[in-house]
Design a protein around this nucleic acid. Structure first.
Length: 878
RNA sequence: GGUUUCAUAGCUCAGCUGGUUCAGAGCACCUGCCUUACAAGCAGGGGGUCCUAGGUUCGAAUCCUAGUGGGACCA
């Protein structure tokens, strides 16, 4: 006995095991087959599966499974990235627990711990993907810090440096005082905060008691001030031009300068210029050739240059200086002020704009082909609206700060001589050789070279991902890269369109002079019911594995996709998973029904079954066309919905009800076999979405050989569509609905047979369907009549009239009212159609088939009106 | 502030190059059913000024303009 409820847990682990053992997902270049490649957006190695991963990996799996079934050489490459700052933070925390400080151990020791951490926890997220059913080629699992990918990064650095695309320079960077590293703009999150604006008095030099008041949100930086700037047109301050003021408490004298940059209407119109601690001030400082005084250490504490508050944290210093200014009577007032503060994505620390020596990649030239090939649709973004965003980014691209003050990552292959000369080479040995030969420093030894201690930004690894996973940087002509590259589709979130997707495109054109992928599918962001982004810190995200446990992987996958239109955010509700689970259960029960039948030996076959098979096959063909169309537009969700309706409504509610034999009756062999074939087809169609249940059922529908799998079964192709049968069945189902409606309205038990009479021109249509009508509507034998049936409930479909003769059940008033309402509607409809057809401009301008359709509609309406009028007369109305 | 995008049923959304296959789907809701695969189910039903105001057109949910209100990106 098969359980009435589908129990996914065992089935899922059983089949996943089977798939792995048989290496169904393994791929190798096969010139006979068309390649279809997806590289996974490598999740952060410290990560655990979250809802966003589930969504985009489900989509990837749907795409790759479908391609595999379509006979393509499908290759889905999994892997993780090393996430330098996040991982380093984890490792530091792990060491702390063991009582070890990072500063007390060597770089080599630290990296050993880091690898230890990675080996222990780094595979978690990949194992979770297996639970989801992901059909990755696991033998190809890559990691951005593994030797091959590490070397590729080093090689690209050297090559770009030699091309003059990489330089070292002092720049204002986003400094994370907690992580003690520079961050790229993309790793910085703006947060709205309620800040205070402090109005501080600067005394004029030589004019005691005369002040300039500036407004600042960062009073602790006044010790780094090098000027006060006013707008030259600001009449309030004309007298102050060229004079000097004293920094409060400190007493250092700084000049008052003028620049158009200063907004007259913000604060007091006086701007304190602090080049070391503000990007705009820095640029202003450059323009006016002002000195730079940096009063902060790497950890955000004030240094000796501050003179005051030395050794205090920047926030403590702020509190103290406000107090002291107040006591000195130099704090005029404070105002509430809505502002944004930049914080580190990884550590959460407030970012400090800081001048520092960093490595940069010039982006202007490199990004040109990447912009062009997206704008001309060589690479297509789905949905297309992201093209605009992409363009505005790429047209305003800044040089990329690629160095990070960390240990976990690819160490920058730059070596310094004692005099500061930089030699960039893959290894120390090569750098030495270069120094010896190019600089004629033959006496030099490796000891004289010091490697730059910094590592490269993680994105400087992952931008090579579609190439480096196939070893295409170091061996650009190898078989794999030539076969699998360019990859087909990339599926990721819009939040990393710029700092990952765009850079992969750049890398693609730079290294292979070719696009890295043809389509970029941008998923929505998974939000909770209130529209908030799901995040660990908010605690509003369900644990994906719990969901899988509860609803089954197939249920969660289809549930997620039910409401995941491309690029639109998805408001996640567990109800969706429930719907997915229920769908699995429905399919399961259909399977139970079919497998429970006994098969009759006779060759007799019911004509209605034959018709139903013809109809369903046409319906399936139509749906396949629809599904393929949806896929071509990356409308994964719509494709699923089409299949959902096909399986639930057409197959279960209609087809199976039609062919279902009576209680304890056998089914004829031909119908049974056709049904098994159809069931198999439906499982194949659903398999990309619901891999487990479809495998389970597919395996059990007929005898399978060892090593067979639905994963490699053919994805069904559309067959013939019989339009006549489809039209007949449409009327059939309308009629059945009407009968059931009548039954419901009159509160008649479904077990009671209803007497049905039909008055129709074309009786043949109904005669061939009689068996089905009787079965689905539970009617008696159909009585074909040529005149009206007195005292019967009646309704009109197209131009045909139907009567259900229920003695004493006819509510003349109600019937009359209904008929009149329907007549009114049809008259209105006829009028508007006539008006349309009477309009010369419509007939002249509209497409001919459209006009023809309108004429047909008019004819149908006429017939229906005639029938309704007769009915009204019969009921005693006029 | 700039750029961009969206507004359709109680909720989440679909609706392509304008045309009754245009006002739809799923969920929720209401009514009746433990009917022999399935109550995680079956049968049926109600529900919308397509944000507002103009315009283009024979015809507008769809195209244009403005407004209102959300989102995203950038500053």
């Amino acid at each position: 006995m098969i359980s009435t409820k589908y129990a996914p847990q065992e089935i899922e682990s059983k089949w996943y095991q089977y798939w792995l053992e048989n290496k169904f997902f393994a791929s190798k270049p096969d010139p006979e087959k068309e390649p279809y490649t997806i590289v996974i957006p490598p999740p952060n190695v410290t990560g655990v599966l979250h809802m966003g991963h589930m969504l985009n990996n489900t989509i990837q799996d749907v795409l790759i499974r479908k391609a595999r079934m379509e006979g393509k050489e499908a290759c889905w490459v999994p892997g993780t990235d090393h996430a330098s700052i996040a991982t380093e933070a984890k490792v530091v925390a792990m060491l702390k627990e063991r009582g070890i400080e990072k500063k007390d151990i060597s770089r080599e020791e630290f990296l050993e711990y880091a690898h230890e951490w990675k080996d222990k926890y780094g595979g978690i997220i990949l194992d979770q993907l297996k639970k989801l059913g992901a059909s990755c080629d696991w033998d190809r699992t890559r990691f951005t810090m593994e030797p091959s990918l590490y070397d590729a990064v080093i090689e690209t650095f050297v090559r770009l440096y030699n091309k003059g695309q990489i330089y070292r320079g002092v720049r204002m960077v986003n400094w994370d005082p907690l992580g003690k590293t520079a961050l790229s703009d993309e790793e910085v999150i703006d947060k709205d905060i309620q800040a205070k604006l402090y109005f501080i008095r600067y005394e004029l030099v030589g004019e005691t008691g005369k002040y300039l008041t500036i407004a600042t949100s960062r009073p602790e930086t006044i010790m780094a001030d090098v000027a006060i700037c006013v707008n030259p047109t600001d009449e309030r301050y004309l007298d102050f031009h060229g004079k000097s003021v004293k920094i409060p408490l400190l007493g250092r004298e700084i000049p008052v300068i003028t620049d158009e940059y200063v907004a007259v209407d913000f604060g007091t119109g006086c701007l304190k210029v602090t080049p070391a601690h503000d990007l705009n001030d820095y640029e202003l400082g450059l323009k006016h050739k002002l000195p730079v005084i940096d009063i902060l250490n790497d950890d955000g504490f004030l240094n000796e240059k501050a003179v005051l508050y030395v050794g205090q944290d920047r926030f403590a210093a702020r509190r103290n200086i406000v107090k002291d200014l107040e006591e000195a009577g130099l704090l005029e007032k404070m105002e509430e002020y809505k502002s944004i503060v930049k914080t580190s994505e990884r550590t959460g620390a407030v970012i400090e704009p800081k001048l520092s020596l960093q490595w940069f990649l010039k982006m202007e030239e490199l990004s040109k082909p990447a912009l062009e090939n997206v704008m001309n649709d060589n690479i297509k973004l789905y949905p297309h609206k992201f093209k605009n965003t992409y363009r505005s980014w790429m047209e305003n691209v800044h040089d990329w700060c690629i160095s990070r003050q960390l240990w976990w990552g690819q160490q920058i292959p730059a070596f310094y001589l004692q005099d500061g000369t930089i030699i960039v080479a893959k290894t120390k040995r090569e750098a030495l050789r270069k120094a010896q030969h190019e600089l004629m420093l033959f006496a030099l030894t490796e000891e004289d070279l010091t490697q730059d201690p910094d590592v490269l930004d993680t994105w400087f690894s992952s931008w090579l991902w579609p190439i480096s996973v196939f070893d295409g940087i170091k061996n650009p002509e190898n078989e794999e890269i030539n076969y699998y590259y360019p990859t087909n589709d990339l599926v990721t979130g819009p939040d990393i369109l710029f700092f990952w997707v765009a850079r992969m495109i750049i890398a693609g054109y730079e290294w292979r002079d070719e696009l890295p992928f043809k389509n970029v599918y941008l998923t929505g962001i998974v939000r909770d019911k209130q529209g908030r982004k799901m995040s660990k810190s908010l605690g509003n995200s369900p644990d994906p594995l719990d969901l899988i446990q509860q609803y089954g992987a197939d249920g969660v996958r289809s549930g997620l996709l039910f409401s995941a239109p491309a690029g639109n955010d998805l408001l996640f509700d567990e109800k969706l998973c429930e719907q997915g689970r229920n769908f699995c259960n429905k399919v399961w029960n259909a399977f139970r029904l079919v497998k429970g039948w006994t098969i009759s030996e006779s060759n007799e076959r019911k004509p209605e079954s034959e018709l139903a098979i013809e109809w369903l096959n046409s319906k399936i063909s139509q749906t396949i066309t629809e599904v393929q169309d949806h896929f071509s537009k990356f409308r994964i969700s719509d494709a699923l919905l089409s299949l959902y309706n096909l399986v639930w409504d057409d197959f279960c509610s209609k087809y199976l009800e039609i062919i279902k034999p009576g209680f304890e009756q056998p089914i004829d062999k031909a119908t049974y076999e056709a049904t098994i074939g159809i069931f198999e087809k439906l499982m194949c169609l659903l398999h990309p979405y619901m891999p487990f249940i479809t495998e389970e059922i597919w395996q059990a529908l007929t005898d399978r050989t060892q090593g067979a799998t639905i994963c490699h079964a053919e994805f069904p192709k559309e067959g013939a569509v019989n339009i006549d049968v489809l039209a007949d069945f449409e009327i059939l189902f309308d009629l059945v609905s009407k009968i059931r409606e009548t039954r419901n309205a009159k509160q008649i038990s479904p077990k009671t047979e209803l007497p049905l009479s039909i008055k129709a021109e074309d009786q043949g249509r109904y005669k061939q369907l009689e068996g089905i009508i009787r079965k689905l509507g539970n009617t008696s034998e159909i009585d074909f009549v040529s005149s009206n049936v007195e005292g019967a409930i009646s309704f009109v479909l197209k131009s045909d009239e139907f009567f259900i003769n229920l003695a004493g059940e006819l509510d003349v008033e109600a019937e009359l009212e209904n008929a009149k309402k329907e007549l009114e509607y049809n008259l209105g409809f006829k009028k508007s159609t006539e008006a349309k057809l009477a309009n010369e401009r419509f007939v002249a301008n509209a497409k001919p088939e459209l006009v023809e359709r309108e004429r047909q509609k008019l004819a149908d309406a006429d017939a229906k009106i005639k029938a309704l009028e007769e009915m009204i007369v019969r009921l005693g109305g006029k």
